[in-house]
Amino acid sequence: MSGADIRLDGLQFAYPGGEPFHFSTSFDAGSFTGLIGPSGSGKTTLINLIAGFEEPASGKLYFDGVDAAGTEPAERPVTMVFQDNNLFAHLDVFTNIALGVSASLDLSGDDRTEIAGAMEKTGLSGYGHRLPRELSGGQRQRVAIARALVRDRPVLLLDEPFAALGPALRRDMLRLVSTIHKEREMTVILVSHDPADVKFAATHAAFLDAGRVMANRPVDAFFSASDIPGLQGYLGT
């Protein structure tokens, strides 16, 4: 399945008592965008809106031109990997991945083959019966990515999933995501606080500040630009 394009048209949202966010931007089908910006600028809120975990107060969200209003998270063409708690602690690796296929765990032979394939791709072969607490932080996120693979949705949202990992491990994980992105031609959005990660893995970069998308451009154009308000200050260049 190839990627879907995503368009945000004046999407408004505010937490109770907080400043309102106002998002307008779009992500091309098959692009890999890194979202950067200061904390509180709305990065996580933006992808939560795309995933359907938050309801916008107004504005429109389109997947491939179709209005997503009123659709449940499970009905959207989206899979999300969180920073933490992606796994059910009492279920083993295989079952955690299998939940991506069927919530009631009714698995056909094909499903099992597919899960085995996803585990192989993410370097988890032989770990099927391990419990999450027996895995390293990097391995746990690999399980989450493997589940995203078996869900096979056009859009993959990543909310700083590698923030807790060391630099070398982080590169490995980004390479894995990059490979998957190329193979499946998914639309990938990665929230990150490290511009280097974005440069390393993404095709596009977007900058958020104070609840607005200030820029969203191809990586090369983005990092050489000097007309993006606030970016210089954020990057410290």
């Binding site: 995933a51 359907g52 975990f53 449940e72 998270p73 499970a74 009905e75 989206v78 899979t79 999300m80 969180f82 933490d84 708690n85 992606n86 059910f88 602690a89 009492h90 279920l91 939940l99 991506g100 919530a103 009631s104 869900r151």
Partner: peptide, 26 residues
Amino acid sequence: IPPENWRLAAQLSFASRHVFQHIEWP
């Protein structure tokens, strides 16, 4: 229960019994 569990449940279209089985009961 971490909020991510509920988001996962939403994304993986858990029915009430799945929520009980996989999230609440443990």
